[in-house]
Simulated assay, not measured.
Amino acid sequence: MLHAFHSNWTRPFFTRNPDGEYAVEPFELLTTALSALAWRRENGPIRMICDTRARRYYDALGLAFLWDGGVHPLLDAVPEDVNPMAFWAAGKLYALSAMPSPCVMIDTDFICWKPLAPLVEGLDAAAIHREDIMPDIYPGPDAFRQTHGFDFALLDWSVRPLNTALCYFGSDSFRRYYTDQAIRFIRCSPGADDVLTYMVFAEQRLLAMCAARKKARVAALSDLAALFGGEQQGYFTHVWGFKQQMRDEPALYDDFCRRCAARLRRDFPDAAERLARVPVLEAYFA
């Protein structure tokens, strides 16, 4: 049995929208439900690690039942000097720092349809796939001019980053080492001025670099071609690459949400009945 967690840190939203009302898009709520319920069915408990504003949002919609491990507002403790624009996914790393291994960190737009344990047996860590080192996304150390006091010298810049849409940690010592390094980089970069390169370095490139430095047993569970080309034998679904296309084409958005609702009715009928009562979702269950 593997324990997993979702995370939701709302500070980046309110930094961008100081007077806004917090909301998650319907398709993201539906994939969140499928992600949590499929995990529970196939793998074990899952919890939501978030902040108080996120917990209130899920409670107001009646969605807290999705996480049988509970909803925990631990991310209220993320330090105020963490730059929420550059490090918009820092909540994941702070959540991971609070979760003992073995554990699985999974994004709310990622669904694991089958048991994961056979794929990660004997590993210190695993991630869904490797990433190519594209200079505009994964630049060299000279690009991080707003980072002060972090030692880049001992890192292997040739190792390919690990995508953390789904990430397993079997070794607690490695989990602590990685999160310590990632959070230290974040705290050393309060003036970070890029909304992509700093975050993916902290979250994905450092994971691979830390694994190489510690000679940890790590694996990629898939690759991009298989993940998005349907060659997964029904193991994984990741919606990330489809999000903007849905936003641009309302018919695709509606069709996707209705297909999610139909899958929920088929696989998780009791949960679907509760989800169908959520005002922003009810039209897709009609």
Rank of each mutant, 00 (worst) to 15 (best):
S7H: 15
F242Q: 14
R176Y: 11
W67A: 00
E231H: 06
R263M: 15
C50L: 11
Y168G: 00
G91M: 07
K214C: 02
R130H: 15
F242D: 13
M1I: 02
A90N: 04
I46L: 15
H238C: 11
A33H: 10
I46A: 05
D193E: 00
A38E: 15
A64N: 09
Q233N: 13
D151S: 09
N83I: 08
D156T: 06
I49D: 12
A98I: 01
V120N: 12
V78D: 10
P190A: 02
I49M: 11
M99W: 04
P115A: 02
S97N: 12
P269G: 04
D194S: 07
R263S: 07
Q233T: 05
P190I: 02
A117N: 09
W39G: 01
R259W: 03
Y168I: 00
A165C: 14
F13G: 07
L29V: 10
E131A: 12
G229F: 05
E42H: 12
V71H: 00
T147K: 07
L221A: 11
A125D: 03
N83W: 09
E131K: 14
G62D: 08
L221C: 09
A286L: 04
L30E: 07
H3P: 08
F174Q: 03
I128V: 14
G44L: 09
D132E: 15
D76F: 08
A54T: 11
C50Y: 13
C50E: 11
A90P: 06
G91C: 08
C210W: 11
L154K: 11
P139V: 02
M1C: 06
H238S: 02
